[in-house]
Amino acid sequence: MRGVLFAFLGGAFITLQGVANARISQDIGTWQTATITQLTGFIMALLIFLFVRDGNLQMFKKVKPYYLVGGAFAAIIIFSNISAIHRIGVTLTISAVLIAQLGLTFIIDIKGWFGMVKQQMKLPQFIGIGMMVVGVIILGL
């Protein structure tokens, strides 16, 4: 039950984050919002990290360098997310974000890109993606 609550809150926070960013951007601008939220999040995570110390430079050196810069995508993600929320609302934005996210993960899993273990997709995965697309079409009509 505790896990369910955490997962539920996690989802609520993701939506809250998008909405808060969209709101803040109305006052200070989109790039300002992205910069400030990432900076304050970074400072908070750093403080927690300094407390738990669950990594060091040697560990990071084992990671392929280009994986280390994955966080940089956040600039484009936040910008696109904010702009989309202003244009088409929260529900449709989040729905489209989820479909693209699961769709790309789906392709990467099938192809086994980025050293992911190749997954065999079965009928339920295709039906699932199909249902999500139908859902977005219903929302967008």
Binding site: I77, V97, Q101, G103
Partner: peptide, 16 residues
């Protein structure tokens, strides 16, 4: 825009 954001989220999750 939302689809671009979502694709990058998917990619970022894998990198992370």
């Amino acid at each position: 825009l939302a689809l671009v954001a979502g694709s990058l989220v998917g990619l970022q999750n894998i990198f992370n």
